[in-house]
Design a binder for these strands. Structure first.
Lengths: 339, 339
DNA sequence: CTGTTAGCGCTTTCAA
DNA sequence: TTGAAAGCGCTAACAG
């Protein structure tokens, strides 16, 4: 294992000089820096992260707390894990992935043992115990998902605007009877931000467009969802468009549509809200993608900015946030069929 | 920040005694250990990971290298990230997530700077540069996905057995004309293990069952897939069952089936091979789930076991591996309709 | 059974 | 413009 001392010896300088060359925090003569750089290259020297961390009390690591619902899986969680990792690297940070299968223990352990400088929390709930713990430890954090209650920075898609946009565009394509499959009932009951704001957006767009928008709450049980959807689709007069926010059950949903004897988009136009970007299987549907990349960059940024409270006092307006405006993607929304 | 010294002072012992109480690597009198434990609890002491690592040259962290294909997203990658993290915790390890957006640089950095003790590689390719680098650095690693070429431990689903099982069970349900949608052409061309072994399994089962199994290679372009599928489904005599290994485009695939005027499972039985477990949207389809949990546990285990080459010499039989047998899940496979 | 002490690799003050 | 040296928190060899 080659250390800073080896490099110093080879370059004929003191260890501290090597350190200064590396950090750039002191003026070094051109000759010296070249000699040091040469020694570094020849020896293939890499600084030991643990030594730096011990000295500086900075890990340059973010802890990312992903949810882990037993028996269910949300593709979005894994996607964020990967994208946040990418985003953090862009800021010079690595990501330590944690699941909450451990309850709040994992986060506490990571914070207390100095494994990370800040945390990013996914899928934050109303009175999330993870938020409590981090607050009590004074550990910096940022949230992936809007939360106006917790005193923490957050980023999110503007779900209100997103659903409103989807409904508005659908109406603009000529649809007068629109079905909105909202978040599942348990999500609304848990007062999830996306669920509530999505419903608000549907209401707002309904008023604005004058279209008849029927809201059908989704359900975590695929069979219940299929039943509800079928009833709503076969009601007379039948809706000509389906705007979907609850996407976890998408294959089952498409199955229910097909079972109802409807072709997409000939008999029924389907518009997705909050889909995963770059999912090739849904490229054929008009949609509003969840801005995963932008959210990931933002949340990494917010978490890192929360690390050093020294720069200036907390501005009086509370923790910062980053609300992202929706954009339509995919093919144009098909007009209703003339039948 | 409370250190081992603070604890020692409060308990009236030497710092090393506290360390020994913590590690259990020395006999301690019951009185002393109680005093120390009390001091630890009262002060809320947690050992600093960086100090331990600096001392012991062990991080108790695994690096997990996830692929990052620009413009495409595979839900499976995020899922493994989360499950491997859980599995690693079960062995007392944390997981540092890396993407290969950086090429091979991230892995090299993590290995050289001592941020992790071993690596887990996902989606390994034929002559994967990450494997080369780790070999050259002598960094311990294990692979998520079969690879008989690289001299590294791996785990995988037995894809040959899985496809064979799916076809066999489909035939046993009475189907005589079966369509097998294999991996995409570029996956076969890249000699991906799952792609090749899946094809082998289809061939084997065809011979065994005597059913007419038509293999249609999938394609990364959803439009090409849809076209191929449509042609194959409308050929006469029409197949009555569809076994699918290429699942990334599933929504589009179901759309193509519906567009062909076919109902599932009345007109066409659909069987999935390698689906994500706990995906609620596909619960209604017979399938063979990818054993994500078992693979994750196994690969964490293999990586950790590769860390300490001291225990005994490499057994002559090459690196260990863990091949998992497939199991059917979901509803029974529907027999062909009498029409 | 317990204490003393050296040192892991690095950064940074203090001194030149 | 550079060097010497202390010390971050912990473990383990050595010494009682």
């Amino acid at each position: 294992m080659t250390t800073i001392k080896d490099v110093a010896e080879r370059a004929g300088v003191a260890p501290s000089t090597v350190s200064y060359v590396l950090s750039g925090s002191r003026k070094i003569s051109e000759d010296t820096r070249r000699a040091v750089q040469a020694a570094i290259d020849e020896l293939g020297y890499h600084p030991r992260a643990s030594a730096r961390t011990l000295r500086s009390a900075r890990t340059r690591v973010l802890a990312l707390a992903a949810p882990r619902v037993p028996g269910a899986y949300r593709a979005i969680d894994g996607r964020f894990a990967i994208d946040v990792t990418d985003a953090a690297r862009g800021h010079g940070y690595d990501v330590l992935l944690m699941t909450d299968s451990d309850g709040v223990g994992g986060l506490r352990r990571v914070a207390c043992s100095g494994l990370a400088d800040a945390a990013v929390l996914m899928a934050v709930e109303d009175r999330d115990p993870r938020v409590e713990v981090l607050g009590e430890l004074g550990f910096p954090a940022a949230l992936l998902g809007r939360d106006d209650h917790a005193q923490l920075p957050w980023t999110d898609l503007d779900w209100d605007a997103a659903v409103a946009l989807a409904v508005r565009e659908t109406a603009a394509a000529g649809h007068r009877r629109i079905l909105f499959l909202s978040s599942a009932e348990h999500e609304v009951a848990a007062r999830r931000g996306y669920a509530l704001h999505g419903l608000d957006g549907a209401r707002r767009a309904t008023a604005e467009t004058g279209a008849e928008v029927r809201v059908v709450p989704s359900h975590r049980d695929p069979d219940v969802l299929a039943r509800r959807l079928r009833e709503a689709l076969t009601a007379r007069p039948a809706p000509t468009a389906l705007v979907v926010q609850h996407l976890i059950l998408l294959p089952r949903l498409l199955d229910a549509v097909a079972t109802a004897g409807l072709r997409v988009p000939d008999d029924l136009t389907v518009v997705l809200v909050g889909s995963l970007p770059d999912e090739l299987g849904i490229r054929h549907l008009p949609r509003i993608d969840l801005p995963v990349a932008e959210m990931s960059t933002a949340v990494a940024r917010l978490a890192i900015d929360a690390i050093d409270p020294g720069s200036d006092a907390r501005p009086p307006s509370g923790p910062p946030h980053h609300l992202i405006q929706p954009r339509m993607a995919g093919p144009a929304i098909a007009p209703p069929s003339l039948g």
